[in-house]
C-alpha cells in the first residue's frame, strides 16, 4: 500500500517546495503534516505544495492543507498549490478549494504567484 512519496527542498531562503505524489490519504497525512510543520519551524513563509504527481487526495489531506494554510497566514506567509491531475483537481472543485487557494498548473507559476503576493 506504499504508493506515495513525499519530498521537500528549499527554492530560496523563504520558500520551500513540498512535493507529494501518489495516493494521499489518512495514512500519508501525518507525514505531510510533519513536512509542513518543519517548513514553518524553519521560518519558511512561502510554501509551494506540488501535487502534480498526486493521483488521489482525500479529505484528511485537505484538512492538513487548510490547517497549514491557516498557520502560515497567521505567521504572515502564504501557500500555493500546484496541481494538474484531473482527479485531484476534481476534489478541489468539489470542496471549493479552488476558490480558497491559488492553484497553479506549474511550479514556476506557483513561485511567481507567491512572489507577487503582497505579504511575505
Amino acid at each position: 500500500m506504499v504508493n506515495y512519496h513525499i519530498s521537500d527542498h528549499d527554492l530560496d531562503d523563504r520558500t520551500r517546495l513540498i512535493s507529494l505524489g501518489g495516493e494521499l490519504d489518512l495514512y500519508t497525512a501525518p507525514r505531510f503534516e510533519d513536512a509542513l510543520r518543519q517548513a514553518l519551524d524553519a521560518g519558511k513563509r512561502r510554501i509551494v505544495i506540488d501535487l502534480s504527481e498526486a493521483t488521489f487526495i482525500d479529505s484528511t489531506t485537505l484538512a492538513v492543507i487548510v490547517a497549514g494554510s491557516k498557520r502560515l497566514s497567521a505567521a504572515g506567509g502564504e501557500l500555493a498549490l500546484v496541481c494538474s491531475h484531473r482527479a485531484v483537481m476534481r476534489v478541489f472543485e468539489i470542496t471549493g478549494y479552488d476558490r480558497l487557494f491559488s492553484i497553479c498548473a506549474s511550479r514556476d507559476e506557483a513561485v511567481r504567484a507567491l512572489a507577487d503576493a503582497p505579504s511575505g
Binding site: I94, T95, G96, R99
Partner: peptide, 28 residues
C-alpha cells in the same frame, strides 16, 4: 452543497449531478 459530492438526479435512466458546489464547511 458545501464541499461535498453533488447529489445525482436519475431521470429516465440518465444520471447527472445537480446543484452547485460551494466551499467545505468550517474553512471560510
Amino acid at each position: 452543497v458545501a464541499g461535498h459530492p453533488r447529489p445525482i438526479l436519475v431521470r429516465a435512466g440518465e444520471a447527472r449531478p445537480i446543484g452547485q458546489t460551494a466551499t467545505i464547511l468550517g474553512v471560510d
